[in-house]
Amino acid sequence: MRFVDSFLDGVRRLEEIVHQARIEGDVAEIDAKGLKHKELNDLMRFCVERGAKKLILKNVCGQRYIGTRLFFNPGVKVEIIIYGTPGNDLGAFLAGHRIVVYGNAQDGVGNTMDDGEIIVHGRAGDVVAMAMRGGKIFIRDSVGYRTAIHMKEYMDRVPLLVVGGTAQDFLGEYMAGGRVVLLGLNLENGRHRCHYIGTGMHGGVIYLRGKVEKYQLGKEVGVVEMEEEDWKFLEKVVDEFCGYFGREIKMERDEILGGNFMKLIPVTKRPYGKVYSY
């Protein structure tokens, strides 16, 4: 059987692709056309090592791991502007950078992201914000299955995921911390259709604008009253959301905030404490 390495086979050397990058001052522009996953990340790292603080990526088409190879010690923080459709694992393990996508994103946005911001002017696929532990993700439209699985928080590191539309099944499964907000701006008849919301959830908060029925929730989550602090938090979140996408969505801030919000929290920090005998 021939051994195929779909990631590394045919990867060209930096010298062969460097002409696709142009650095001016601290801004670099990369034409991602025809670049393999690794090649694009090679070029991005090359540009940042040469002092670029802002990377503008044009013609992005399915390249994975954008932003992942930019961990430097001591930390350098850059801004990455993407035109096109970034591939899976956009900003995986992200080390504090800011990514803005003009287009849709695929699966695994912000996978195990450490810190930074990802703003997607479009929709995103499955497993968004999986095991995310810091920073913020804003998605203008909807997201796919298994969103925010095992998101976690620690002290002042509280990750935030804001989705303009809705999510599919298994939202917030095993969630251990952080905040997820579904604004439900595109719902038909005001209902979210996902099931198994928060199954195994043992930390964090999910805010939903729009309706879900009890049977759509995992048995580890409970619905609690919104309190003043929650509204304050949501005002900030919606302001930020409108700041990014205000011109692309049809609703005004006040109309969004005037909607019907639900707050979901885990019933216990220890959902499986009672299944063992010693």
């Binding site: 779909s6 990631f7 996953h37 690794k38 990340n41 994975r64 791991y65 992942t68 190879r69 961990f71 899976n88 694992d89 995986a92 393990f93 699966d107 695994g108 996978n111 497993v127 999986m130 298994r146 699985i149 095992h150 499964e173 095993y174 251990a176 195994g200 043992h202 920090k269 220890r270 959902p271 499986y272 404490g273």
Partner: peptide, 27 residues
């Protein structure tokens, strides 16, 4: 409780495993 799910929820196939392997190599 520190709960480790049974599967990695981003790995449901060899292709997905490959994706995480290369995500780590990239990182």
């Amino acid at each position: 409780d520190a709960l480790s799910p049974a599967p990695h929820h981003d790995i449901y196939s060899i292709e997905d495993l490959s994706m995480l392997i290369y995500a780590l190599k990239e990182a």
